[in-house]
């Protein structure tokens, strides 16, 4: 389109005629995302107090190697090099982390809040070369669908964690007994919110039916597309609620494990 050049006035960084508090939203996004990343990194590096009885922190699930009863393959082998990380969270947290990092919604938000690209609509941005998502590393954002597949698998594991969180050790008989604690509800809400976020994923919407120009005569596919589209309309809400609740769930389990909080049993 070489013959389509249009000259126009470029705004300086932050220059705008907008009168509203346009900077509030990117500031809130910057604060909440930074707080989450700092907390999740701190929690992941701890390697302790991530489980309490039948509860397992979602930041550590699935626990592949670890000392708790939740570990799939038991403790780390003794031959594990000492300089490598040992916290179970570090083996798995990359997957949900990359799912959110490559999420279409979050991309738009962190480009604004962290890169000021643009800081807000109709607000001038720093002068620099721009290639969008066409070059490395941002071209890798196109792999989002692969992290979606992993996220769907993780969702099943977290659902199983909720089931396990419904079984408590009976001190009198020594057997497991069905019950519901506050922690069970916290972990269940976590799965619901993560489910709402994952099932509204734009890539899932595409795979469910967006890929097709015609959905008539494909009732199941059409139903799936409608269902994902329904979640997708509130993708932003699900994204933020699920993010905050994951951190809260970890904090709840952590506080119970350290004895700073008592887990009330609602049904036992």
């Amino acid at each position: 389109m070489a013959d389509l050049h249009v000259p126009a006035t470029i705004q300086r960084f932050g220059q705008t005629a907008r009168r509203d508090a346009w900077w509030v939203r990117p500031l809130v996004v910057f604060t909440v995302l930074s707080a989450f990343v700092i907390y999740a990194t701190w929690a992941a590096l701890q390697g302790v107090n991530y489980h309490y009885g039948s509860y397992l922190s979602p930041l550590y699930s699935p626990e592949l190697f670890g000392k708790s009863s939740h570990a799939w393959f038991g403790p780390l082998p003794e031959s594990w090099p000492a300089f490598l990380p040992t916290s179970p969270a570090l083996f798995i947290l990359w997957a949900p982390g990359l799912f959110r990092l490559t999420c279409y919604y979050y991309r738009g938000q962190y480009y604004r809040a962290f890169a000021a690209d643009p800081p807000s609509c109709a607000v001038g941005e720093p002068s620099r070369k721009y290639s969008g998502e066409r070059k490395f590393p941002l071209v890798l954002q196109n792999l989002h669908r692969y992290f979606l597949y992993i996220a769907l698998f993780f969702l099943l594991i977290l659902l199983y964690d909720v089931w396990k969180a419904m079984w408590f050790n009976d001190a009198e008989t020594g057997h497991e007994r069905f019950g519901v604690g506050v922690g069970t509800i916290v972990l269940a809400v976590n799965v619901v919110l993560l489910g709402g976020y994952t099932f509204g994923c734009h890539s899932l919407r595409h795979l469910a039916g967006g890929i097709k120009d015609r959905l008539s005569g494909r009732p199941i596919r059409r139903r799936m597309y409608m269902c994902v589209s329904c979640f997708n309309r509130r993708h932003m809400v699900w994204a933020w609620l699920s993010l905050v609740w994951v951190a809260f769930s970890d904090l709840y389990v952590r506080l119970c494990a350290t004895g700073m909080l008592t887990d009330w049993k609602i049904l036992l």
Partner: peptide
């Protein structure tokens, strides 16, 4: 030619659309 990779989905287009077309989504 249309350069879709240049869009970084910040949704400003959706925000200003008077017909409320969900352009980005």
């Amino acid at each position: 030619e249309n350069g879709i990779g240049l869009c970084n989905i910040t949704k400003c287009c959706t925000a200003v659309c008077p017909e409320e077309i969900r352009i980005t989504d």
